[in-house]
Design a protein around this nucleic acid. Structure first.
Ligand SMILES: [Mn+2]
Ligand SMILES: [Mn+2]
Ligand SMILES: [Zn+2]
Ligand SMILES: [Zn+2]
Lengths: 143, 143
DNA sequence: CTCGCTATTGCGAAAATCCGCAATAAGGAG
DNA sequence: CTCCTTATTGCGGATTTTCGCAATAGCGAG
């Protein structure tokens, strides 16, 4: 993946040590095309190379989120999910009934972002906001 | 609290059995003026009456959320927080830097809600949406 | 290339949440 | 009021996530 090297270089420049564990985790996430839980990731890693301790996986994910290299989302399933940054910004519409997740254009939120800025001087980031509600299908099922 | 009886009646009408545990939990939440974690709630209960098993607390909270009598929010702290419904609808602006939570008028999101409806036929509920970002103070600290 | 500082890892245990199951008890029927 | 059905509880244990601490190993200095 093209982004692995960029990520690793960024981390090195920010003073992080590049360990084999970190390289493996970064590569695994960069390869993924969808959202992964920490456990998914560990399983993915186990097949390709020797096991990495689960605590290390959690610590590395936390660090990568904080450094802005990956995205963490809460989709209401109890477990957090992680995605590579090139997954791209979008709103997550999560149906409370069926749990389905729909992606939506995050630029729809830009006027709301401006209003929040004007009223609270809060710099809101809607690039991966989760919005709960009811999907079209489940609305029909409710008559 | 005025809402306790209403809640208990609603549950009874929906076929739930009213146990002492459920009454205590409902009263404790109705009394609270802010967000509580499950553990906060258990501690609150322990002082006023005999202990209730923590599993029962979690199960009851889950049920009350599903029945629409209380609100569950993820404020990015790992633990979910619960609030009585009369806490009222509002957006939660959560600062990624300092963790502070600011309340904002949820009706600001109504045009976004309409756009989402037009494009996805998804009935979005912004009454307790969590929006991450950077608060005014932390922006200044970043120069 | 070698050495030393200290960031990072693995391990074990704690904390938070959820689950299965047997015992209990709410509430409707008689 | 008593009995019966079955929803609910408490308990023990599983699962997910976090944490402290000693052992390990990056990587910059020499
Ligand atoms: Mn996504
Ligand atoms: Mn609130
Ligand atoms: Zn749905
Ligand atoms: Zn802040």
């Amino acid at each position: 993946m093209p982004h692995c090297h960029t990520h690793i270089e960024k981390l090195r420049q920010r003073g992080y040590r590049i360990t084999p564990q970190r390289e493996i985790i970064i590569k695994a996430i960069a390869h993924s095309t969808s959202h992964l839980t920490a456990e998914d990731l560990l399983e993915l890693i186990r097949t390709s190379s020797e096991a990495i301790n689960i605590a290390t996986v959690y610590r590395t994910l936390e660090m990568l989120v904080e450094e802005g290299l990956i995205i963490r989302s809460d989709l209401g399933q109890g477990r957090a999910v992680y995605a590579p940054h090139q997954h791209g910004p979008h709103l997550h519409l999560v149906c409370r009934q069926c749990g389905e997740v729909f992606d939506a254009d995050h630029t729809m939120a830009c006027s709301l972002r401006e209003q929040i800025w004007e009223q609270h001087h809060f710099e809101a980031d809607f690039s991966h906001t989760t919005v709960f509600g009811l999907c079209a299908l489940c609305q029909k099922k409710e008559e």
